[in-house]
């Protein structure tokens, strides 16, 4: 199975986990990696710049309608939901879902519905249950579901909820998640017109 997009959701403890994860990704990483991290609505550009410090991949906050490109790390902007369409992003200021905007569930569901079995969902450390329902959608659509092993998470609640929702998800350490992502088969010719 060739994969085309990865969505990583995290909350409490996420910064350290994300830095550890993307540090391990090789410079020629061939997939777009989309990060949805709960954070304060005025947190600004700090997260992307802290992530950029530890990877040769290009890191940016998503602008509305930006095309999705391989080998790029995208960060969901604070105070917007991040939706994924085939080949590009769309933002929304619809109501927070379970008190969160961005909502990890919303982005995971959107990736699953647009990319189906070509999508990868990853749920890392966090102190709530966001991501559990979205990861289930990724799994149900035939995508790959990865979860941080709760015992290795700074805050195990979110990975635990994700595993309860998707018992078949693979529970791995951050290092193992990075190795798994780096070895994923990548579709050579991206099709831009799949709807």
């Amino acid at each position: 199975m060739a994969y085309e997009i990865i969505v990583v959701g995290t909350s409490w403890g996420g910064l350290a986990a994300l830095r550890e994860l993307i540090r391990e990704l090789p410079a020629g990483f061939g997939l777009p990696l989309v990060i949805v991290q709960h954070r304060h609505k005025r947190s600004g550009q700090l997260l992307p710049s802290l992530l950029q410090d530890c990877t040769p991949l290009f890191v940016c906050e998503v602008d509305d309608k930006a095309p999705i490109e391989t080998g790029t790390v995208y960060v969901a902007p604070a105070d917007y939901h991040l939706l994924i369409e085939d080949g590009h992003f769309a933002l929304s200021t619809d109501e927070p879902v379970r008190y969160s905007r961005p909502s990890i569930d919303v982005t995971l569901v959107s990736a699953a519905d647009s990319y189906g079995e070509h999508s990868v969902g990853v749920v890392l450390t966090g102190a709530n249950a966001d991501g559990a329902r979205g990861l289930k959608r990724i799994h149900d659509r035939g995508g790959l579901a990865l979860v941080q092993l709760p015992s290795t998470a700074e805050s195990p609640a979110m990975p635990t909820a994700a595993l309860r929702s998707v018992p078949n998800a693979r529970a791995l350490s951050i290092e193992q998640i990075a190795a798994t992502l780096a070895s994923l088969p990548v579709e050579s010719a991206r099709h831009s017109e799949r709807r």
Binding site: E95, V97, R98, D105, V106, V109, D113, R133, R137
Partner: peptide, 13 residues
């Protein structure tokens, strides 16, 4: 405000 269960707003599987 959305209730948690209707909030996913996606189609049935």
């Amino acid at each position: 405000p959305l209730t948690p269960d209707e909030a996913l707003d996606g189609p049935p599987l």
